[in-house]
């Protein structure tokens, strides 16, 4: 085990909503007591449905959402920051070291700036380069890494396809030399062939430059292919976290298992009905008591409505928050079963 680049303990992000009928303020816990470690140089996947709080968690780790409880520590070879009380020069320093890649490459780039200016902007704003020549050199170097050529740098974003735009966003995130990048649904808006291209690029960046990624996605098959470690989030809490292979070979939480079986299989004869989830994720303003998943869990018992399950380590690095996980075997869930030999023959 190497050192974690990000280490969160009981991290809570809550927002106060307007007053209710009785004058009491409602608290919305978007992130509700999460502890996790992101190892240096790893590709850490975070999955969950919309409304599960994955984006908020990602932003809190970048100090772009208010940390209302717990702690987050960032550490690299040079410095360490306690994110909770980060401000002034230290916060500026952290901005340089931690970056975000957005979901929508159409909305993330200013239409009035050339690609060169878009990529150079972080350098100029943060004052990382001393001369225009130095900026240009840095921009060209990063653009080359993201397979953008000099011709591309002179153009405006509208001239590019979705995949190329996402490469521009990636270049912009890389230019300040970050050690930690949050990629929030960065391939969700792309066609499959372009998605494969961008995923390969992100993987190459992680391996060649040793950058750690938090890869937020709702697509488990994408996460399975790119990440080393996966955490599953539901209504602000982690329900399961494990090395990728362990998680996909044997999901231990009924929610993970349901997410897996909801992925449409490429084999028309392989229909998985067994684990389909009913209903939708409850509103985070009124989360269910006990295990937050109990309202949609087909295994829920009385204890689940009462007691909040804590993460327990059941296999090396594989932790799950479920009271009764030992009693079920989800590994036979059809969606993750090895493909029958005759399927492609």
């Amino acid at each position: 085990m190497t050192d974690p680049v990000i280490s969160a303990r009981d991290l809570t992000v809550s927002y106060t909503l307007g007053r209710g009928l009785l004058g009491a303020k409602t608290q919305l816990h978007a992130v509700d007591g999460i502890s996790l470690d992101i190892e240096k140089g790893s590709f850490f996947g975070l999955v969950g449905e919309s409304g599960s709080g994955k984006t908020t968690l990602g932003r809190a780790l970048l100090k772009a959402a208010p940390i209302t409880g717990g702690s987050v520590e960032y550490r690299d070879e040079e410095v360490s920051h306690d994110l909770r009380d980060l401000s002034g020069a230290a916060l500026k320093d952290y901005r340089k070291r931690a970056q975000l890649i957005f979901q929508d490459p159409y909305a993330a780039l200013s239409p009035r700036m050339t690609v060169r200016d878009i990529i150079a902007e972080p350098l100029e704003v943060m004052g990382l380069t001393k001369s225009r020549a130095e900026t240009d050199e840095r921009v060209r170097e990063i653009a080359g890494r993201c397979r953008l050529n000099l011709e591309h740098l002179r153009r405006f974003p509208h001239a590019f396809s979705g995949g190329q735009r996402q490469r521009i966003s990636i270049a912009r995130a890389l230019v300040s030399g970050p050690r930690f990048i949050v990629a929030d649904e960065s391939v969700a808006a792309l066609d499959v062939s372009i998605q494969a291209d961008v995923l390969n690029l992100l993987r190459a960046i992680q391996q060649d430059m040793g950058i750690s990624f938090l890869f937020i996605s709702h697509d488990l098959s994408v996460v399975a292919h790119t990440c080393d470690h996966v955490a599953v989030m539901y209504l602000g809490r982690l329900v399961e976290t494990a090395p990728t292979r362990s998680l996909f070979a044997r999901p231990l939480h009924p929610y993970t298992s349901a997410l897996l079986s909801a992925i449409p299989s490429l084999d028309p004869d392989e229909t998985s009905q067994a684990d389909k989830l009913e209903g939708e994720i409850p509103s985070p303003t009124a989360p269910p008591p006990g295990c937050k998943f109990h309202t949609r869990c087909r295994f829920a018992r009385d204890a689940c409505k009462r007691d909040v399950p804590q993460l327990r380590e059941l296999a090396p690095g594989h932790r799950v928050a479920c009271h009764f996980t030992e009693e079920f075997d989800f590994s036979r869930a059809p969606a993750v079963a090895p493909r029958r030999a005759d399927a492609t023959a």
Partner: peptide, 12 residues
């Protein structure tokens, strides 16, 4: 180009 769950080692 599709990520496949039954073969995590297959390159995209």
């Amino acid at each position: 180009a599709l990520p496949k769950l039954h073969d995590l080692d297959a390159p995209l």
